[in-house]
Design a protein around this nucleic acid. Structure first.
Length: 790
DNA sequence: ACTAATAACATTTTT
DNA sequence: TGTTATTAGT
């Protein structure tokens, strides 16, 4: 073990060793945040603190698992496994199961996932005969979630006039009712949704001071990772628990707060000092991950945000390559250029595919990229598309388990009663639901005793229901008898799922069967492991308690593949080379966020996260047009490119950027300008690790006024080759007034084409239609069209 | 009750 | 465009 503190920098060590009160560790990107957290916990254990009195909260199971492993390596597994380490949701669901009776739940309560919540809300809206256009289930679900994150219960909601006013304004006067019904239905189903896990923890601590005191005594030290992403509910839980010991250490980076849409409050970290006046602040400012070039680009961007903790992130690595800006005609072209550049870098540096990541703002962008990479034979891995536990066949299997454990689980009931098809259709299910609600009992009760409740179905259906009930009874009986693996195996076979899946010989069907097999394999090994470790078999109820909060299976795909994922999913990860694609207005930043300054700031942080994933080389790519929702629209480069000090960027692969977003008063002036600038090096000659002379050209590129590119003025230009400069001038000088239908023209971006149509000839807004060889028909405003008749 | 056709829709999503 | 959810038809 030795003294592991030697492996830390001065400030890291200070942060690790301070444990006499609250502390805030502001951890810049790549500054060794996880290292500090793990070493701090290891250090506490070294000092003789019992691991079982340390509470360490993370946001992902993966982060918890990794940290636990690393701590285990430092102080031994027998120590690390006693830690209270896990996600907020998993830790507090464990506590809630213990204390469930106090809240009117049993310890076997189900955890509803987002789909369950949505379905429940949908059925409530239907039952209430409300219009699902005005009461869009997703909107309702979102608002309920928001309210829970802010600790506003349905009861509180309905008692406040301001909320009702808001609902009137939103044309959802009955939202408060829906919230109430939803809450009641969850309670009746003995189910909590994700937000409930935190909300009920707060309620538990609020209404039962003795219970709070108990846990305050258990948790002598509290550590929170990714503190910038905590919501109010989480903030309050931490505050309550830490109220006795005051030994709370939160770690995070305000510049990487990107989950406000899920209720995260950046002010939790910004105002930590106000909440804990005696707290000590440690700033980890050295970035060990990225080159100075990348770090300064990221700094230059994030500087544009107001309200942040001042910090000076720096890197002491070699300068590295400048961040490259790349432009393309379309999303297809972009994917092609990305794959070409990727291949080129790979060849020149000898790096592996797994050293590359392609990051995008929205999942929909992955499709074109996938197509192109497949065509070019570049192996890739998609992250977080549909996770293992979101697959239908897995959810179906889990549905049986859920219903066997918690008979009141209505969502599970609805899911599996006719899966696989057993002749119990929508009408019958609808009747069961109605009967159940009219009699204020669960569906299970109606199913058990259809006669008593006069379920209006025929004898044939009745027999099918009885058959299903028999199946479920056998499962209920088995849940205590068999271990988790045996039980799930029984579920899969007795339910008829196995036969149904086996019958499907389509590739999708085969993969569904494989997924179920994978679930069984995973279960078999964790059951064996549990038996070996503590001599107890793994029971389904325990498995279910864990699995409800799992999103993905352990990723053991070690193949050499390019990683593709959303920027959100990339947080916390790092890659030698990062391509940020779709850096366009209305996409990144997303249209949805452009309305508010806070929205834009969050998008900017997201962009910051994207850049700071890169270790050696970073490319920012945008396309001039992009197909979205089936229609191709022109797109402008993201304002975030303009936010970055242009002298730090390499525009040699984005001639378009220069042409569109800088304008020159006269061609003479332009010539003059180009003479004063040295030609730029060949950007494609990329050696990510090699030292490069720092780019020190000073020029400004003003942000484009969205929607009116022609009104832009920029004093200077990015350095270009002489040839390029000449071509721009030529295009500008050309006044296009004599263009006729049938003329052959050349366009700076679209290449060769033929004029097919003229509109409003002679007027200032004259338009021209050109059929281009490569990109097809385009309509251009003649005045601004960079075309030349040939 | 199941299938096929069509209409509606479409950020990000650690749990 | 591609998916998903509802609806109409068998």
């Amino acid at each position: 073990m030795g003294n592991f503190l030697d492996e830390l920098s001065g400030i890291q060590r200070e942060a690790v060793c301070f444990n006499s009160g609250p502390s805030l560790v502001v951890a810049g990107a790549g500054s060794g945040k996880t290292r500090v957290l793990t070493y701090k916990i290891a250090q506490l254990i070294e000092e003789g603190i019992r691991p079982s009195s340390i509470l360490a909260l993370t946001f992902t199971n993966k982060a918890a698992r990794e940290m636990k492993d690393r701590i285990g390596k430092l102080v031994g597994d027998e120590n690390s496994k006693r830690l209270w380490m896990g996600t907020f949701h998993s830790i507090f669901s464990r506590i809630l199961r213990k204390e469930s009776e106090l809240l009117g739940f049993t310890s076997d309560f189900t955890i509803y996932d987002t789909a369950d919540s949505n379905n429940l809300i949908k059925s409530i809206i239907k039952e209430r005969k409300l219009d699902d256009k005005t009461y869009a289930p997703k909107k309702v679900a979102n608002r309920i979630s928001q309210m829970k994150n802010d600790l506003i219960t349905a009861e509180a909601y309905r008692s406040k006039k301001e909320f009702h006013d808001y609902d009137l304004h939103q044309r959802m006067p009955l939202f408060g009712d829906l919230y109430k019904y939803y809450t009641i239905r969850c309670q009746k189903a003995n189910a909590m949704d994700f937000d409930d896990l935190l909300l009920y923890t707060n309620i538990l601590f609020r209404d039962h001071p003795d219970i709070l005191a108990k846990y305050q005594n258990i948790f002598k030290f509290i550590l929170v990772d990714e503190y910038q992403d905590t919501n109010f509910s989480q903030f309050l839980i931490v505050q309550k628990l830490a109220n006795k010991s005051h030994k709370v250490c939160v770690v995070g980076d305000d510049a990487q707060s990107i989950y406000s849409f899920r209720g995260a409050r950046i002010e939790n970290i910004l105002k930590f000092k106000e909440n804990y006046p005696e707290c000590k602040v440690f700033k980890l400012e050295q970035n060990y991950r990225s080159t100075p070039n990348i770090v300064s680009v990221a700094n230059s961007l994030i500087k544009k945000n107001e309200g942040q903790i001042p910090k000076n992130v720096f890197s002491e690595r070699k300068a590295g390559s400048p961040v490259l800006v790349m432009n393309s005609y379309s999303e297809t072209d972009e994917s092609l250029k990305v794959s070409q550049l990727l291949d080129k870098i790979k060849r020149q540096t000898g790096m592996r595919y797994s050293d590359f990541a392609i990051l995008y703002r929205t999942n929909a962008q992955s499709r074109v990229l996938e197509k192109t990479l497949r065509q070019k034979g570049i192996p890739y891995r998609l992250w977080g598309s549909t996770s293992f536990y979101e697959r239908k066949e897995i959810l179906d299997t889990l549905g049986y388990i859920r219903l066997a454990i918690n008979n009141n689980d209505e969502e599970a009931f609805k899911r599996i009663i006719n899966t696989p098809a057993r002749g119990i259709g929508d009408t019958t299910v609808g009747k069961i639901l109605e009967t159940a609600h009219n009699n204020d009992v669960s569906c299970w009760t109606v199913l058990s005793d259809p006669m008593t409740y006069a379920l209006p179905v025929n004898a044939g259906t009745l027999a099918k229901l009885a058959e299903f009930k028999k199946l479920m009874d056998s499962l209920v009986a088995a849940k205590e008898e068999k271990d988790a693996y045996e039980f799930v195996e029984m579920v899969v076979h007795n339910s008829g799922m196995w036969t149904a899946l086996n019958a499907d010989r389509s590739p999708e069907g085969v993969s569904r069967l494989q997924n179920v097999e994978e679930l069984l394999n995973g279960l078999s090994s964790s059951a064996a492991q549990k038996l070996e470790e503590d001599g107890e078999p793994l029971m389904v109820a325990d498995f279910m308690a864990e699995v409800a909060l799992m999103t993905s299976l352990d990723d053991n795909d070690t193949d050499d593949k390019v990683t593709m994922m959303t920027v959100h999913a990339a947080k916390g990860l790092e890659f030698k080379n990062v391509f940020i694609v779709g850096a366009e207005e209305e996409l990144f930043p997303s249209v949805m966020s452009t309305g508010t300054a806070e929205g834009i700031e969050e998008e900017r942080r997201l962009f910051y996260v994207a850049i700071t994933r890169a270790e050696d080389f970073c490319v920012i790519s945008y396309a001039k047009s992009r197909m979205r929702n089936g229609a191709t629209n022109p797109s402008n480069p993201s304002r975030f490119i303009k936010d970055i000090d242009a002298s730090m960027l390499d525009f040699s692969m984005a001639p378009d950027y220069v042409k569109l977003y800088s304008r020159v008063a006269s061609s003479d002036e332009m010539d003059l300008h180009f003479q004063s600038l040295k030609p730029r090096h060949d950007t494609l000659n990329i050696r990510p690790t090699a030292e490069r002379p720092q780019q020190r050209y000073h020029f400004n590129v003003e942000p484009p006024k969205i929607g009116s590119p022609a009104t832009n003025t920029a004093r200077n230009l990015t350095p270009l080759s002489r040839a390029e400069a000449g071509s721009i001038r030529n295009l500008h000088v050309n006044n296009n007034t004599n263009v006729k239908v049938g003329d052959k023209v050349i366009h700076a971006q679209f290449g060769m084409g033929v004029v097919t149509k003229l509109e409003g000839a002679g007027t200032p807004m004259a338009k021209i239609c050109v059929h281009f060889q490569n990109v097809g028909e385009k309509k251009l405003i003649l005045k601004y069209a960079n075309i030349k008749v040939v």
